[in-house]
Each structure stands twice: as C-alpha cells, then as structure tokens.
Design a binder for these strands. Sequence first.
DNA 1: CTGAAAGCGCTTACAG
DNA 2: CTGAAAGCGCTTACAG
Lengths: 332, 332
Amino acid sequence: MKDVAALAKVSLKTVSRVINNEPTVNPELTARVRLAAEQLRYQPNFGASALRRSDGRSSTIGVLLEDLSNPFSATIYRAVEEVATLRSVSVLGGSLDESSQREHDLTTSMSRHRVDGVIIAPASHDHHYLRQEQEAGVAFVFVDRPPSLLAADQVLSDCRGASQRAVEHLISFGHKRIGYLGDATTISTAVERNLGYADALKAAGIPLDPSIVFQGLRTIDSVHEVVATMIQSDNPPTALFTGQNLLTMGAVRELRELGLQHEIALVGFDDFLMADLLDPPVTVVAQDVVSMGREAAHLLFDRIDGDRSEVRCVIVPSRLVVRGSGEIPPRY
Amino acid sequence: MKDVAALAKVSLKTVSRVINNEPTVNPELTARVRLAAEQLRYQPNFGASALRRSDGRSSTIGVLLEDLSNPFSATIYRAVEEVATLRSVSVLGGSLDESSQREHDLTTSMSRHRVDGVIIAPASHDHHYLRQEQEAGVAFVFVDRPPSLLAADQVLSDCRGASQRAVEHLISFGHKRIGYLGDATTISTAVERNLGYADALKAAGIPLDPSIVFQGLRTIDSVHEVVATMIQSDNPPTALFTGQNLLTMGAVRELRELGLQHEIALVGFDDFLMADLLDPPVTVVAQDVVSMGREAAHLLFDRIDGDRSEVRCVIVPSRLVVRGSGEIPPRY
DNA sequence: CTGAAAGCGCTTACAG
DNA sequence: CTGAAAGCGCTTACAG
C-alpha cells in the first residue's frame, strides 16, 4: 500500500479510501491509485485491515461439521458457502469426527483467526466454554445438533417427529415387530430418532422389545452382524428402521446377502444417492439438508449484522419418500 | 497480550516468548504468564502475529475444488484437511463450479488472506495470472487437472490409461460397438478419458464412430435422452463407457428404464457408493481420491517448507473394479 | 476532499 | 534471561 501511495503520489490514507470505495475521493486521484495498484498488482492485506478496523471484522467464518467428506456435512458446507460468497465472506472448514478434543482445538483455532462467526455441528455435550467467545462478539449457530449449557441459535431437523411418522408408516402396513438400528447415543439426533421410534410403537400400543433395538452402531460393517443376528433369532423382526445413512446402506447390503430384501421391510433415516435404483428402491426420511445449511448461514449473518434478539431455534421439516422397501407387508 | 503482560507483571516480549514456546524463559515467569493468560482467556491473534513475523506465515492454506458438495471434491478436501491438521494449519475451502470468474475471485481472496499455499482443481485454462503470487512465495499445487501456462506441481490420476484399459476390458468380452458419454471438453480430464477411449478402439482396430460419442454432458438428466437415442437407433451400441460419476448413474437409470440393464454392458469412470448393490453391480474405474488429496497436501507442505526443486507431477494410478455390468457379452 | 500522526496486536532487532 | 523501541500493513481520529 505504501508503494501504491508512492507510485500514485498520494498519501496512504487516500489509497485506503480508494481500496475501501469511500465516496469522497477526487475521481482523478482514484484513477491514479487504481492504476498504481494495478501496476504493482497490489492486494490488500485482510489481516492487517481487520487488525485496525473498529468493528474488528475479518470477513471470515468457521464451519465445523462432523466429517466434510460425508454427504450430509458436505451439503451443509456447500449451502453455507453459497450464502457466504454473496457477502464476500471466506469459510474456514473443519471436521470434528465426534471428538470433543477436536471441537475444542478447532474452536480455539477459529477464535485465533478472529472469525466473525461459527456454524457448528458439535461433537461435545458441554458448550459453556464458548461463552467467553460469544460475549467477545463471535456469533455461534448450531446445526443438526443443539448446544448444551449454552444459549445459542440452532437449526435442527425434526428427527423425532419424522422418525415417528416413518415407523408409523411401517405399522400401517401391518408390521408389529420392527427392529431398530441407531447411531451412538452420545449423538443427540440418534437419541431423537430412537425416541420417535418408541413414540410410534407406543401410539400403536406395540410393546418395545429391547432385543431388537441396537444402538451405538457407526459404520456399514457394524450393521451386518446385528442384522444377521436379529434375522436368525427365534422371533425375527418383519421390518427394520435404520437411524442413519450408512446404517441404511449396511442393512440393504445385509438383507441382500440374506436374500431377504423383498421379505423384510426397511425404512431409513437420511436419503442417499441411488436409493431409488436399488431393488427394492429404498423408502427413506429425507432431510432438507440444503435448507438446514442455508438457514444456519442466514441466522449467522443476521447475528453478525448485529441482530441481538433472543436465541432462535429453527426446525427444518423432513419428509417421507416412499419408494418400495417400506411398503413390504409382514411375512407372517 | 498487553493485559496478560500487566497481570503477570512482565514485559510484552516475555509474554510473546512464552506464547511461542521459546526455550529461554525463566520457568517462574513462564508459569506466571500462563496463569495470567488462563485467567484472561487470552487467545493470540494469528493475523497480528503473521503481520509482523519475518516469514509472514499465516498457517492457513486454501483448497479450491470443483464443488465441495460432490463426493470427489469432498474426499480431496478431507484428505488435505487431515494432513493440514497434523501441522496445525487451517483450511479455507471454496467451490469453483467450473467458473473461471470464481477461480479468479477465490484465488484473489486467498491472496488477500495471505495463505501459505493453495491446492486447486482449476476451472480456467490460463493460470499465468497466478505467476505473481507464486513469485511472492505462495505455493500452488494443482490436483485432478493440470495447470495451463504456469509451471506448478500437479497431482493427477491416470485418466487416459485407465480409460483405455476400461474400454479394452469391454472389447475383451467381444464388444465392437461401444458408446461413449463424456463431460464438457473444456475439462481436461474429460478430454483425457475420451482419448483413452479412442486409444483402446484404435489398438483393437475398431473404427471410431462419432454417432455414438457424446461429449459435453454434465448431469444425470442430460444422459437420459442421449442413451435413449443411441439405443433406439438403427445400429445401437452393445456397450457404454461413461466418463464420470453422475453420467454413470444416469446411464444406469436409463438402461434400467429401458429394461436393458442386463443386455447392454456398462463401465463407468469413478466409483460411487452403492455401485456394488445395483443390479447388475456396476464395473468402474476407481480413482484413489484419498491418495490424490494426501499427495497434493504433502507436495504443498514440502514447498511451504522451502523445497525449491523443479516442478513435480505425481500420477496416482486408478484401478478397474470388476463387478458385473462390464462383463455382459454383446447381444449380437 | 486530503493528509500526518497514532495505534491495532504482535514480532524483530537490539541493548542490557 | 529480560525488556524498551520500532515497525508489519492497515484504519481511526483528527486537522486542514
């Protein structure tokens, strides 16, 4: 900037004015500055600018999700990026991998980068440590999972209600024995989905049988054994409800291997690519992931723009996508 | 930092030494500084630190890919993040969407953030504009697609050779009439894959028939019409080679709709989730995307660490995954 | 409308 | 081993 000022024969301050598009600059000087900046390929230094600005804005936000390589996180990231781009805001991304340690490390890193705000799908269950940050003016929006011990905006999908409707859908086809496969119970959405399952059974007067409820499953492979065990038991389920993407894929695979894909009904939580091309096509609860990301971004930027209204909680509705696997009647 | 120094009753410089883990500090002072920092919840300011440091390092890199919500880009991002995390480096992510404009905007933004390096899967075909940046010390590594008019490290997958082998695989089952579906010819990998297709035909002495070669396809939907037209022509292909993920899925869907999924052979470039569970399971060329991301990250950090050796080009091998759809013999 | 001085939070270069 | 001064690239607050 010093060099630009020298070349354009104006003061530093005038260069600063031109760069920041302040209106009160003589057009001739503006032209001279722009030319000089062009010639020197001058690029303003965001960091130095943020350091001195009174609002301290870095025009950078953090997006901390479970795993940027999984389709759910990737879609949220992209939806946020879209909104951020419109405001020329850069995005620092990070994957938490269900680790509280990484959550701490990455939020610390965000704070050292002096981001204006953070969108987070948390791994930990105690967020009071973010309180200082919030008070220091960093906006936080929780997405997919609510904050614990911290008042902050959140964008969630209706896991419990949507799960209940999905299981009721199975019940409406005559199923009374519905197996449940769910993720780790440390994950709030997994708990919600399990509750929705229980709600549906209760509403239909079906007793909950813990021997066909499996939680704490995390991968496609972990599902295989569980499904095989359930199916080969004395009193196997006639339908399955899977609480997550990868678990659904695992169940599809195992049912196929057992040759039971047309005998045992299946409804999964979370849609996935090609679900409609499998045999049978898989009925799922589809979350509106793009809306979740977009909503979270809008909330965040509202806060960054100074919205001090009380904490908001946005629930994004999910819908049941009927394709075939969930409409198989019970075998007996 | 000023406050920490005051509370610990030491100079600014001593706080700076403790924060940066310089060894030459009296343990007692170190303890006092740490305590004060703890009490004040002091977080060092990366930006201010980078501004003054002699090496100017920001401990931030940029990762600019086609679309962070697609599995290929997301996997690369994640692999890079993994390596960056080990070095406590933050990652600014961006999606280019095949737009040269966005490529310019985002590289400019990276440069204003004073990133130490950029990993990029470019959209444009002229990268000489990055020359200044390079000379200013910013490392660039191109991934998936080579740079044009710029000398820079690159990590590519063996598109041409792998495509040739895939088409030869079809030929080995007796196919002589193999349709080609490919992405926009402005994308270098799409061109390479098409060349591999042509190589295989040539090596087998099969004339290339332009009436069954379709390029410039970008989405699942765009494929439907093309496949239908080819199949319903007087002289339809007995096999298809699809040059990309989404095109393969589109072809699977259309063949299924035409009821020809067991009649017409199909090999796709790029693996995808559930490909093995379709009927028939889909034979694909699987790129080692994680290795590509990891290699790119290692190259980048080598450069950031001062490696000034000549430009490197890493080719990551792909492999043919035989599953069923590619082993269907010709109908006639 | 323009500019000279001060200072953001930090590290460098030097003196003690 | 410790600290006072200067300065990174920028914006603020003020004077003209």
